[in-house]
């Protein structure tokens, strides 16, 4: 297993007085897939969002402890969340394409980060991202059509393309398949496999099968605590904590 990309130590997250994430320690490997599972409201999304400081946008939210990316504390006052988020991208539960053309959706990140030197450069980046997101063939003839006009599964792949167009080192995915049918889900899982060859992927999912299929490591959260973290195979075949076992056998949920 390769060295850890992100590590969290003593991470606590509060919304006002609500203690949503409690003292979590976790290491996320590079070039691998880590799954977060657990019952609804246990703090998976909250913890995921603290990995690229998306929680900064919520006024009441407060994060304690340290989270490092390549050994550097991302909550250091010198760190600009803008720089961080360019390296740690995010895909959300509900597809959220911008009200722009398909091309402009994908080109958005590269443009703001000044990644393309020329128009053709930009076109290459966009095409490349759309190809990796396995949606190129479906949209290559209508790059100027609005992104909001695509089907749900296509929209989610567009959002993934948009996220990987900026070449993040880590991609955080919060239930990316919850709005999709089995075929689209399958396509996205393939895509995750493919992405993990180059970058680390963290995925929140409610589907145990999906966690088992795509991830190498799994973290099980319960009521804000990280109950168990380890190799996916171990967690699913031989959980050490009774709460994990109840959850994966369907007794908590």
């Amino acid at each position: 297993m390769s060295a850890s990309k992100i590590s969290a130590r003593g991470c606590n997250v509060f919304y006002g007085d609500t203690h949503a994430v409690k003292d979590v320690n976790v290491d996320i490997g590079s070039k691998s897939v880590t799954a977060f599972i657990g019952p609804s409201g246990c703090g998976k999304s909250t913890f995921l969002r603290s990995l690229n400081r998306m929680n900064d946008t919520i006024d009441s939210c407060r994060v304690e402890g340290t989270i490092t990316l390549d050994g550097e504390n991302i909550y250091d006052p010198r760190v600009d969340p803008v720089t961080l988020r360019a390296r740690v991208g995010m895909v959300f539960q509900k597809p959220n394409p911008f009200p722009k053309s398909i091309f402009d959706n994908v080109a958005y990140g590269p443009k703001i980060h000044g990644m393309a030197k020329s128009k053709s450069d930009l076109r290459d980046i966009v095409e490349n991202a759309l190809r990796r997101a396995a949606i190129w063939d479906e949209v290559k003839d209508r790059l100027d059509a609005p992104g909001t006009g695509l089907s749900g599964g296509q929209q989610q792949r567009l959002c993934i393309a948009r996220a990987i167009a900026t070449h993040p080192e880590v991609l955080l995915m919060d239930e990316p398949c919850s709005a999709l049918d089995p075929i689209a889900t399958f396509q996205i899982e393939e895509l995750i496999d493919d992405l993990a060859k180059n970058i680390s992927v963290v995925i929140v999912t409610h589907s145990m099968q999906q966690a088992a299929r795509v991830s190498q490591k799994t973290a099980f959260f319960h009521l804000g605590e990280l109950v168990e973290f380890g190799d996916t195979d171990d967690i699913f075949t031989n959980p050490s904590d009774p709460r994990t076992e109840s959850y994966i056998t369907g007794r908590i949920g």
């Binding site: 946008t57 988020r85 959300f92 959220n96």
Partner: peptide, 26 residues
Amino acid sequence: PQSLRDGSLGLGATRSETIRQVVLPA
């Protein structure tokens, strides 16, 4: 919708970029 802002901020856009290029056009 907040999800559009999140999408843009999540890509590493600044607030003003988000407002000018995503929120206001929307």
